[in-house]
Amino acid sequence: PAHPYDRLKTTSTDPVSDIDVTRREAYLSSEEFKEKFGMTKEAFYKLPKWKQNKFKMAVQLF
Rank of each mutant, 00 (worst) to 15 (best):
P1N: 11
P1V: 14
P1D: 12
A2S: 15
A2Y: 15
A2C: 15
H3W: 15
H3S: 06
H3G: 03
H3Q: 07
H3T: 06
H3I: 15
H3M: 08
P4N: 07
P4G: 08
Y5F: 08
Y5A: 03
Y5S: 07
D6T: 00
D6P: 03
R7N: 07
R7A: 09
R7Q: 08
R7Y: 06
L8K: 05
L8G: 06
L8S: 01
K9F: 10
K9N: 11
K9L: 08
K9S: 10
K9P: 07
T10V: 13
T11S: 11
T11N: 13
S12L: 03
T13I: 11
T13H: 10
T13L: 14
T13D: 11
D14Q: 06
D14M: 11
D14R: 04
D14K: 06
D14S: 06
D14N: 13
P15M: 04
P15Y: 03
P15H: 06
P15A: 05
P15L: 08
P15E: 04
V16F: 07
V16D: 02
V16R: 04
S17A: 14
S17Q: 15
S17G: 12
S17C: 15
S17E: 13
S17T: 15
D18L: 08
D18Q: 05
D18G: 14
D18E: 09
I19P: 03
I19W: 07
I19K: 02
I19F: 05
D20H: 05
D20V: 03
V21G: 07
V21P: 12
V21H: 10
V21A: 10
T22S: 11
T22C: 14
T22F: 03
R23I: 09
R23G: 03
R23P: 04
R23L: 07
R23T: 08
R24L: 13
R24W: 14
R24E: 02
R24A: 05
E25A: 06
E25C: 12
E25R: 09
E25T: 06
A26Y: 12
A26D: 08
A26S: 15
A26E: 10
Y27T: 04
Y27F: 02
Y27I: 03
Y27G: 04
L28T: 01
L28C: 09
L28P: 03
S29H: 08
S29D: 10
S30D: 15
S30V: 14
S30F: 12
S30N: 15
E31A: 12
E32D: 12
E32F: 08
E32K: 02
E32A: 05
E32T: 04
E32C: 11
F33P: 01
F33I: 01
F33K: 00
F33C: 06
K34Y: 15
K34R: 13
K34V: 13
K34T: 12
K34A: 14
K34Q: 15
E35H: 10
E35D: 12
E35N: 08
F37N: 00
F37V: 02
F37D: 00
G38R: 10
G38A: 08
G38P: 01
G38L: 09
G38H: 11
M39W: 02
M39G: 00
M39N: 00
M39D: 00
M39S: 01
T40P: 05
T40M: 07
T40Q: 03
T40S: 12
T40E: 08
K41C: 08
K41L: 09
K41S: 06
K41E: 08
K41W: 08
E42R: 10
E42P: 06
A43R: 11
A43Y: 08
A43E: 15
A43P: 00
F44A: 01
F44P: 00
F44I: 00
F44L: 00
Y45K: 02
Y45I: 02
Y45H: 02
Y45S: 06
K46V: 10
K46S: 13
K46T: 11
K46G: 12
L47M: 11
L47I: 01
L47P: 00
L47D: 00
P48L: 00
P48E: 02
P48G: 00
K49R: 12
K49L: 14
W50T: 02
W50P: 02
W50L: 02
W50C: 09
W50K: 04
W50E: 07
W50D: 09
K51T: 12
K51I: 14
K51Q: 13
Q52C: 02
Q52E: 00
Q52V: 01
Q52G: 00
Q52P: 00
N53L: 12
N53Y: 09
N53F: 09
N53K: 11
N53E: 11
K54M: 14
K54V: 14
K54N: 10
K54Y: 13
K54P: 01
F55K: 14
F55A: 13
F55N: 02
K56I: 05
K56L: 08
K56E: 02
K56Q: 01
K56A: 03
M57Y: 09
M57F: 07
M57W: 13
M57I: 13
M57E: 11
A58R: 12
A58D: 12
A58W: 13
A58H: 10
A58S: 11
A58Y: 12
V59G: 01
V59K: 07
V59H: 09
Q60I: 09
Q60M: 13
L61Y: 06
L61V: 05
L61P: 03
F62I: 14
F62N: 15
F62P: 12
F62Y: 15
F62K: 13
